[in-house]
């Protein structure tokens, strides 16, 4: 009887793995230790912003007091190109400020990218050595975080944003009096 125990334990593991595969398509959340915790703070050089003149650097403290979307991307990331039209659509809706973290990238390449594809971001900052991305526990680009007015990470999406996730996981999490009133454009 006791010789059956290993096979039994393995059978349980298989069940768990099988459920894991079943759930795979809907499972876009990599466990993030950050959910419900304060987002890492950062102060990084700015690549592009919709303010003029463009400030040299931008500090995460300046976003305190409002909900915003934090999108990690890079010009080297093919999936980011797929995602880009969705980001432009999110920007067009003007529901939340969109902050971009250009991860391990070349500033000039990033500017060219934004010029040719359009710039959905209110501010894009450069994480040249990937330190900030590590602080956020980023596994790969693109990843998108929803951060609330107290600077707490509310949600994290792995992979390209899509209308469904945007509606169901981001907009639905906003407090009813969503701060969409004119915060766009002046972070």
């Amino acid at each position: 009887m006791k010789y059956l125990i290993p096979a039994g334990v393995f059978a349980l593991l298989v069940v768990v793995l099988a459920i894991g595969i079943q759930r795979a398509p809907s499972k876009n959340v990599i466990p993030s230790a950050l959910i419900g915790k304060p987002a890492p703070t950062w102060s990084l050089p700015v690549i592009a912003s919709n303010q003029s003149p463009t400030p040299a650097s931008f500090d995460s403290e300046r976003l305190r007091g409002r909900w915003f979307v934090f999108n990690v991307w890079g010009t080297w990331c093919p999936e980011c190109k797929v995602e880009h039209p969705m980001l432009l659509e999110m920007a067009r809706q003007k529901k939340l400020p969109l902050i971009g973290l250009d991860w391990k990238d070349d500033d000039a390449a990033a500017r060219r990218w934004l010029e040719s594809l359009g710039d959905p971001y209110d501010v894009v900052v450069a994480d040249r050595d990937g330190r900030t991305a590590i602080d956020f526990g980023v596994y790969g680009a693109p990843e998108t975080f929803l951060i609330d007015d107290r600077g707490v990470v509310v949600y994290k999406h792995v992979g390209a944003m899509n209308p469904d996730v945007w509606q169901r996981e981001f907009l639905a999490r906003l407090p009813t009096a969503a701060p969409s009133d004119g915060t766009q454009g002046q972070p």
Binding site: V14, K27, N28, I30
Partner: peptide, 30 residues
């Protein structure tokens, strides 16, 4: 990255079947 797994579920199922045959077979033999 859960994402890449989801991208190709056939791989996941193949893997699971293979694990069941090899490990499960050996443990049954045991």
């Amino acid at each position: 990255s859960v994402h890449s797994f989801a991208a190709d579920p056939t791989r996941g199922i193949f893997i699971l079947v293979f694990l069941v045959l090899v490990i499960g077979g050996a443990l049954a033999l045991y």
